[in-house]
Design a protein around this nucleic acid. Sequence first.
DNA 1: CGAAAATTTGACATGACTCAACTGGAGTGG
DNA 2: CCACTCCAGTTGAGTCATGTCAAATTTTCG
Lengths: 201, 201
Amino acid sequence: MDLTILATSQLIEYFKQYFPLDEKERYELIRLFAEKQVKRRHYILQQGDVCQYYTFVVTGCFKMYHVDQKGVEHNLQFVAESDWIADLSSFYSEKPSLMYIEAIEPSTILQIKKADLLYLFINHHKFDRNFRIITEQKYMELQNRVLENISSTGEQRYQSFLARYPHLASRLPNSQIASYLGITPEFLSKIRSSLVSKDKS
Amino acid sequence: MDLTILATSQLIEYFKQYFPLDEKERYELIRLFAEKQVKRRHYILQQGDVCQYYTFVVTGCFKMYHVDQKGVEHNLQFVAESDWIADLSSFYSEKPSLMYIEAIEPSTILQIKKADLLYLFINHHKFDRNFRIITEQKYMELQNRVLENISSTGEQRYQSFLARYPHLASRLPNSQIASYLGITPEFLSKIRSSLVSKDKS
DNA sequence: CGAAAATTTGACATGACTCAACTGGAGTGG
DNA sequence: CCACTCCAGTTGAGTCATGTCAAATTTTCG
């Protein structure tokens, strides 16, 4: 049995949210996306490498992060089922990435190479549209995050993260969430214990 | 003389960076984008209104900001010549916006309505591609900003802003830059004076 | 079960905010 | 051309938010 077809059918379902795909388009997805299993703590991108693939997460969960000069990790994003991940800047420029993309859970992914994605864009312009819409949605999310970063305290950002991404919050260690919020794990721990005492009162 | 054609020619030049346009496409741009003059301190979007237009800035400069419950402004972005501005979230959902978009300088803009933009996407798929690329680039920029927000001090973010957007920094009052960076104007002033004494030594 | 990782806690240090007072231009009107 | 106002920017004192480091505790997973 060809597992790729199973995984790809999830990708096809995903695209149907936006626009129905015809048979030729479905065929191209099956042909151009390669399935891969990734173990927990394994990388699909490491700092210094060029990001070669645009990745669709079928099952599992990843984090993309940067490591600064002091060796501290800063989580830029988490992605789980039916979501996309790539370091776009490295992917399009073909320059070494500053990021790591690491599996937080054992995961199944579908990957497409840059040349194949460009082929898709040129020959099936529906994908230009799909990726325009996907990117616009991610842009809005990111804009929201920036707004919170410049206007809210760590406590407010934490509560907002819990409310917005409950499916992620329950799967992630707090230290990872702290890194995403831009605070230290110690400080997040203090926030959490102060929330507990607020709840009681 | 039709000034719209002059302004639109700048828009056409802008699109040429990505892909050349044929005559029909140029004609559609001229037909669907409306030129407008905006005076300093005037708004093209106010909180509570639906964002009706996707706006291309021909000359001048705008800021998009949110006003929180305490009445404090938080600058989400600045845009100047040959750049785009809209509250995408309100534009696509047609729900009231939480943002203001205000001219910082007397400006000339070109605006397109949602229905006309969708018409463009459907009938000239090159624009799906152009806007996919534009949004991808803005996404990368925003991702960079998030990374700085969660990993750097106010001083580092200020220096990085000066280096990355010199054409904006020279035109903006410091209080506006402080709001963009997520710090108070007083604190930015202290950062600036500490940088001066560092320079001397 | 045991080792390693994650979380909590406390003392202290620093970044950043608040508020209020002061300074120094950039208009504006006489 | 001067006096006046107004607003952005600066400065200082006190405070709050968050970071640092180290140690204790709990949880996770092999």
